[in-house]
Nucleic acid binder design. Sequence first.
DNA 1: GCCAACGTTGGC
DNA 2: GCCAACGTTGGC
Length: 155
Amino acid sequence: MVKKYWLVKSEPTAFSIEDLKNSKNQTTFWDGVRNYQARNYLRDEMKKGDGVLFYYSNTEPNVVIGICEVVKEGYPDHTQFDPESKHYFPSSDPKKPVWFMVDIKFVKEFKTPVTLEEIKENSKLSKMKLIQRGNRLSVMPVEKKEWDEIIKIGK
DNA sequence: GCCAACGTTGGC
DNA sequence: GCCAACGTTGGC
């Protein structure tokens, strides 16, 4: 099994890497993804042990703040069945859930977070989905060489 | 706060 | 099945 690499987005005001560190076992379920393409990655492709870049959007500056790892593979996102949740999705049938999530565990916080600007300026990172026009995916695959470069810069 | 990009919804 | 309207994302 070849290890794969991913990037997930979060607004730090919603869920920060500090929140992840403070979670039980430094692990959390990545709930609330309501996009089919991202869902397919969560459900079908993210495997235990895969590396995940933790990205902050809508901040100043936007950065890859650290890394974590997949510790539990795709399973139904319970918030879709919860009328109290803002992620409630009434048309989803518990016998055939629409939305999935994975569990991720904190690995490290970068000494030098990698800014969006640096990613844009780095020719090795110019193909990253993150900076492709109009991209709004909150979960996306990352190439190994891109992962390696980010890790090198972030430390 | 603005607005371009894009996904989803719903009328037809 | 088309597509206009609408809501959300996310960089700036």
